[in-house]
Amino acid sequence: MSGVRAWAAGRPAAARLGLALIALLCLYAFVGPHLSPHSPTDIDYTALSAGPGARHWFGTNRIGQDVFAQTARGLQKSLLISVSVSAATTALAALVGTCAGYFGGWTDHALTFLVDLLLVVPGFLVLVVVASRLRNAGWPAYAAAIAALGWMVTARAVRAMARSLRERPYVRAARHMGVRPLRIVRGHLLPHLAPFLITHATIAAAAAVVAEAGLSFVGFGVQPPDVSLGTLMADSAEVALTYPWMFFFPTGMLLCFVLAVNLVGEALRTRLDPVAAWAAVRR
């Protein structure tokens, strides 16, 4: 108990707020559906476009579906996509970045070329084109597509760090001892990159939610009957002013999540920033 308190005390208020928000949103997304008597696909013909009230907490949409349940389902999907995308981009960036930076030479040339090539591709347009082919593959395919186009900048940063770590005396010592390269990458490079990668992962999570929502909003993302925050927003965007609850709740959730993740990410960055961490270590 005291450990938890000490942990929380060490964090600025903004980060604590962010963590609390994320916890609440997760609670809502995964426990919320069980609290509500309605399922997201049930249609309540007695309450079309009903405002928030005792029966439908967040109101209903134009065909009588419960907004609370729908938002929970959409948020669930968005969170799943964001977590998997952030994990995938971080892993890919770490792998490509460390390999390019540590091995140098042809490995570096080839990987850097690939990264540069992907960087000049207009990501959103490619997603739009690819998305139409992925219509039947379900959300993991979208997650993969988003991840495939979002790892390059991080990989370049990781490569630069790996290059400088490569010349650290302890890494040189390990090479001279005959430690195998992949073991050096795992044992010496990755632990030092971890703070940067963790920070990147949180920020990538926020970016992924926005990307997914944007894609779904323009109709290329998650396909009905599945819902995500993006599709919910798209469906209710025209009536946002007449039936604000239909638009307000999914949009609010999206905003809250992005804000919370950014707050936590910023706090992590100042705390774990590799430069700061290295300076402390070097001393």
Binding site: R168, P169, Y170, V171, R172, A173, A174, H176, M177, G187, H188, P191, H192, V281, R282
Partner: peptide, 15 residues
Amino acid sequence: QIVLQDPATTLDPRM
């Protein structure tokens, strides 16, 4: 085996 110059930097601070 080799022992490099500055002991403070030849030991991985995270190990």
